[in-house]
Write a protein that binds this DNA or RNA. Structure first.
Lengths: 339, 339
DNA sequence: ACCGTTTCTGTGAACGTGCACACAACTCTT
DNA sequence: AAGAGTTGTGTGCACGTTCACAGAAACGGT
C-alpha cells in the first residue's frame, strides 16, 4: 500500500462503467433508480462503485439538470436578535435536518441592513438556489416582494399579510386568546399586555387574540407596545405599564423573552408572581423554564415549522404548484407556575 | 412589455460574447479579472452583460474549476445546546458574514448522533465542500479524525488536543486564571469551581487556569465537574457544591449559562451575591446581563472567532499551507456586579 | 416464419464555463 | 528591415454528468 503525495483524481462515472463492464448510460440509470437495468448489471455496478470509490460529482449533475440542489434560508432580523431568539434557531435546525435528509444544502442568509437586502436580491436572482424559506418577514417586506417578482419557489414561516405565497405557521391569534383566557379564569381583573413586533403578522395576531379573549374587559390603556420580542423590550414595556397602571394583576407578554424581562421588573417592584400578578408568555423557549417561577406559555413547535416549510418547498421544487393556503401547526398551552 | 408564461433560458457567456462582438474567451478573461482585455472590449462587455442580464452559472464554473465554492460549518453539539449557546450562534454569524463577502456558501452541518457522524463523513468525502470549519470538537473526535484523513482544508475553532490542524481560539487558561484572580483579590477564601465539558480543550483549560490562579489555595473538593456548559448543569453543579462545602464564598462557573444556573440555586439557598458569595462566569453571552446581579465574566469574541476561522480557511483553499500554530484572540475580563 | 412488444444497453450530444494554445497586431530594439 | 518582446483575441477541448435516441435481445402471439 503506497501513499502518493499527489491527490488522486476522483473516480468518475466512466471509471465505474469500465470497471463493471457496462456503459455510462447504464450506470447513470442505476444511480438514478430508473427502470431497465438487468440484475447482473446491477450487482456489477454496485461492486465497481465500491472498488473505485466512486462519488457523484454534484457540479456536473447540477449543470445538466439545471438545479443547484441548494435552498436559501432567509432570516430578516437584526443580528443581535438572531442570536437571542431560540425560536429562530429551532426553525433553522428543523429546516436544516429536513433538507439534509433530502440531500439539499441549506444556505443561510441574514438580512439586517438595506445593503443586505440588495445582496440577497442579487443572490436569489443569480440562480444559486432552487428556492427559499423566509423567516420572520415583515409586512411590505422588500425581500418578500423580490421573491414574488422572481417567482422562485418559496415558503414563508408565518403568514405576512399582503404576501401571496405558501406558508407554514401557527394560529397566533387563537393561541394568544386561549392563554389569555386562562389568565381571566384565574380571577384576574386588570389584565395588561406587552405587545411586540407589531410590524409582523405574529405580533398583530397575538394582540388580536388578547383582545378576543378579554372582550368587554379589554382596555386600550393596558396595552403597551414595544418593537421587538426581546428581554430588554420586556423590561421597558413592564416599566411603562407599571407606571401607568400600578393596579394591574395580570400580564400577557408577547414572548417568553419579553415575559422574562417583565418578570425581573415585577420582582424589583416588589410584586410576587403569581401571587400579586399572573404572567404568561409565548414560545415555550428555554426562557420559560429558567425564570422563577417558571412561565406558563404557549408551546411553539419551532423544529416542526422548519421541517414543514422544507417539505413544502421541496414539493414546489419538484414541480408541484405552490399551495396558497398555509399549513397550521398545533401549539398547546403549557401550564407552569407563573399563572 | 410582455410576460411569457414559460421561463426564459438564462443568458450564457456565449450570449454576452455575441452581444458585445467579442469571443467567449475575452468575456471570460474580463469576468475573471485577467490581463489583456482592451478598453474597448471591456466597455462593450460591461454593457452586454447588463443588456442580456447575464449571471455566471456556478455549476459550470465549479465543474471546470473543480471547486464547489462552499464551506462546511460543522457543529459537534447536541441539538438542544446548539439552541441554547449564544456563543456558537455568534461564531456561526461571524463565519457566515466573512464567507458571504468572499462569495462562498456556508453549509451548516450539525453532528449529534453517531448516525450524523457517518453522514458528515460521507458529505465531506463527496467533495461537496472545499473545506470545513469545526466548532467545539472533542478530543479524539471521530469528525476530527475524518478530516485529518481526508486532508481537506480545515480550521478548528478552539484547539482540541491531538488534532494537528489550523485553529483560531482564545487562551482559555489565561482568561480563567485572570478572572479567578479577581475573585481571590476581593478577599474570597474558599473559592469553588463548576467545571464543565472536560472532554473538550476549553473545559480542561478553564479548569487549569482556575488551578493556576489559586495556587496553594486550590482544593480538589471545591471542584465539581458537569458534562455541559448549560444552565441546568449549573443548577446541578451548584447544588452538589453547596451540599459538600456550605462555607464556600466564591464560585467560578465555566460558562455564563452555568453561572446563571448556579445563581438561581444560590438565591434559593438564601445566599446573596456578591455579598455572601462572589460569582464569575465565562463567555460574556447575553446571559451575563440578564441575571440579577449582572455577571462578571470573560468576554469571548465569538463573531471574530468565526470570521478569523473563515479567513484562515480561505487562505488554505487558496493554496496556502495550513499554519499549524493557531491564532489567539484577546478576551478581556468584563467587570460587572456579581464579584 | 413473421411481427410487435417489452426489456435492456450503448452512443453521441448537450449543459456553460475555464484554460491552453495559436496567432495577429503593435512596439521596441538592433 | 528583421527579430524579439508585449498585448490582445479567437478556437477547441475538457470538466462529469443526464438525456434522447437507436438498436439489440428476448419473448409471446399469430
Amino acid at each position: 500500500m503506497t501513499s502518493s503525495a499527489e491527490p488522486v483524481r476522483p473516480a468518475t462515472l466512466h471509471d465505474v462503467a469500465r470497471a463493471s463492464g457496462v456503459s455510462r448510460g447504464t450506470v447513470s440509470r442505476h444511480l438514478n433508480g430508473e427502470r431497465y437495468v438487468s440484475e447482473t448489471a446491477r450487482v456489477a455496478i454496485e461492486q465497481a462503485i465500491v472498488d473505485v470509490g466512486y462519488v457523484p460529482n454534484t457540479a456536473a449533475r447540477n449543470l445538466v439538470r439545471r438545479r443547484t440542489q441548494a435552498v436559501a434560508f432567509i432570516v430578516h432580523e437584526p443580528h443581535a436578535l438572531f442570536l437571542e431568539d431560540p425560536n429562530i434557531a429551532g426553525i433553522l435546525l428543523g429546516t436544516n435536518t429536513a433538507l439534509s435528509d433530502a440531500d439539499y444544502q441549506m444556505v443561510c442568509l441574514i438580512v439586517d441592513s438595506d445593503r443586505d437586502t440588495q445582496r440577497v436580491a442579487r443572490y436569489l436572482n443569480s440562480g444559486f438556489v432552487d428556492g427559499a424559506i423566509v423567516v420572520s418577514a415583515r409586512e411590505n417586506d422588500p425581500v418578500s416582494r423580490i421573491i414574488e417578482k422572481l417567482r422562485i419557489p418559496a415558503v414563508f414561516v408565518g403568514h405576512p399579510r399582503g404576501v401571496d405565497a405558501a406558508w407554514v405557521g401557527i394560529d397566533n391569534r387563537a393561541a394568544a386568546a386561549s392563554v389569555t383566557t386562562r389568565l381571566r379564569d384565574t380571577g384576574r381583573q386588570r389584565i395588561a399586555m406587552i405587545a411586540a413586533a407589531l410590524d409582523r403578522d405574529s405580533g398583530t395576531d397575538r394582540l388580536a387574540g388578547f383582545r378576543d379573549a378579554l372582550g368587554e374587559l379589554f382596555d386600550e390603556r393596558l396595552v403597551e407596545s414595544v418593537p421587538l420580542y426581546s428581554y430588554s423590550d420586556g423590561v421597558d414595556g413592564m416599566r411603562a405599564l407599571l407606571a401607568r397602571e400600578p393596579l394591574l394583576d395580570g400580564v400577557f407578554a408577547a414572548s417568553d423573552a419579553v415575559a422574562a424581562g417583565a418578570l425581573s421588573v415585577l420582582h424589583s417592584a416588589g410584586r410576587t408572581v403569581p401571587g400579586d400578578v399572573g404572567l404568561v408568555g409565548f414560545d415555550d423557549s428555554s426562557w420559560a423554564t429558567r425564570t422563577t417561577p417558571q412561565l406558563t406559555t404557549v408551546h411553539q413547535p419551532a423544529a416542526q415549522l422548519g421541517a414543514g416549510a422544507a417539505a413544502e418547498l421541496l414539493h414546489q421544487i419538484g414541480g408541484a404548484p405552490a399551495s396558497s393556503d398555509g399549513v397550521i401547526l398545533e401549539c398547546p398551552v403549557v401550564w407552569r407556575d407563573s399563572a
